[in-house]
Simulated assay, not measured.
Amino acid sequence: MLVLLPPSETKSDGGDGDPLDLGALSFAELTPVRLRLTEALRTLADDVPASLRALDLSERQVEEVERNAELFTSPTRPALERYTGVLYDALGAEKFTRAQRARAGRRLAVASALFGVVRAEDPIPAYRLSGASVLPGIGGLRAVWRADLEKTLSTVDELVVDLRSGAYAALADVPHAVTVRVVTEGEGGRRKSVSHFNKAAKGRLAAALALAPREPGTVRTVVSAARAAGLRLEPVGKRELELVIDS
């Protein structure tokens, strides 16, 4: 099973890994696109005003540009530790035992505007680039990533559970993936999508799937693993699930 997580705008600082080595990342066939984007982003960092405009940042966020300037020299840390925020807090990887961490490393991957997709233990630096960014000389990232990333994800020969958010799902379609929608249930069983608790709910689901003693390989076993963790996950279509949370 491969659980595709969305990334986060916020990322932890530092790390104790060697500087970025694109060849050390999973899905090596994506290296040419990764090289093109990392070099473009690092070069863009030489022009701070242009970087702020392209990345939709304020002048108070200039440190994000500084991170991009150090893409090839700053220390790395595993992707599961690099990304932070509500979803990753709910995932709680820092509390995993060594055996649980190894299990999560095999099952979790993170969508990335800069790297396409990386596995949980892939060593990456701190950076700033979102799925909706438009880079000078490069353009929108969907056009950059779509062909290569779709080809890569289409060859994953195991169940894919897609928890990506809109901007990252737009970078590549994964037709065989199982998608998850977070909903609340009102009177008469009427359901509606939620945004406020979406990330936390997906983080808890990702943890349930990552830590399940037996790896889920079907929609039925995904639902069972979620329910064993106290989550209400229900199929609503052949490849669609709804995660029902309290309003």
Rank of each mutant, 00 (worst) to 15 (best):
M1P: 15
V3E: 11
L4Q: 07
L5H: 04
P6C: 00
K11D: 03
D13I: 03
G15Y: 02
D16G: 06
G17N: 11
D18T: 06
D18P: 12
G23V: 04
L25C: 05
E29H: 01
R34Y: 02
R36K: 12
T38G: 05
L41P: 09
L41N: 04
R42P: 08
D46C: 01
D46I: 00
P49T: 00
L52A: 11
R53Y: 10
A54M: 11
D56K: 08
D56F: 00
L57R: 03
E59L: 03
V65L: 11
L71A: 08
T73L: 10
R77K: 15
P78C: 01
A79P: 15
R82A: 07
Y83D: 15
T84F: 15
L91Q: 02
G92Q: 06
E94Y: 11
A99P: 14
Q100E: 15
R103S: 13
G105E: 11
A113T: 06
F115I: 07
G116M: 06
V117Y: 14
V118E: 15
V118F: 07
D122Y: 00
D122I: 02
I124A: 02
P125F: 01
P125E: 01
A126K: 04
A126S: 12
R128K: 03
S130G: 12
G131F: 02
S133F: 01
V134L: 01
P136V: 00
G137R: 02
L149E: 14
K151V: 02
K151R: 12
T152F: 12
L153Y: 15
L153S: 13
T155K: 13
V156T: 04
D162Q: 12
S165V: 10
A167L: 07
Y168F: 10
A170W: 00
L171S: 13
A172M: 09
P175S: 07
P175G: 09
H176D: 14
V178P: 09
T179A: 13
T184Q: 14
E185Q: 14
E187I: 11
G188K: 01
G188Y: 00
R190A: 08
R191Y: 00
R191D: 10
H196Q: 10
H196S: 09
K202Y: 11
G203P: 11
R214D: 10
P216Y: 02
P216H: 01
R220S: 11
T221N: 05
A225V: 04
A226D: 10
A229V: 01
L231I: 09
L231K: 08
L233S: 06
P235V: 00
G237L: 07
K238S: 05
E242Y: 03
V244H: 06
I245N: 08
D246R: 06
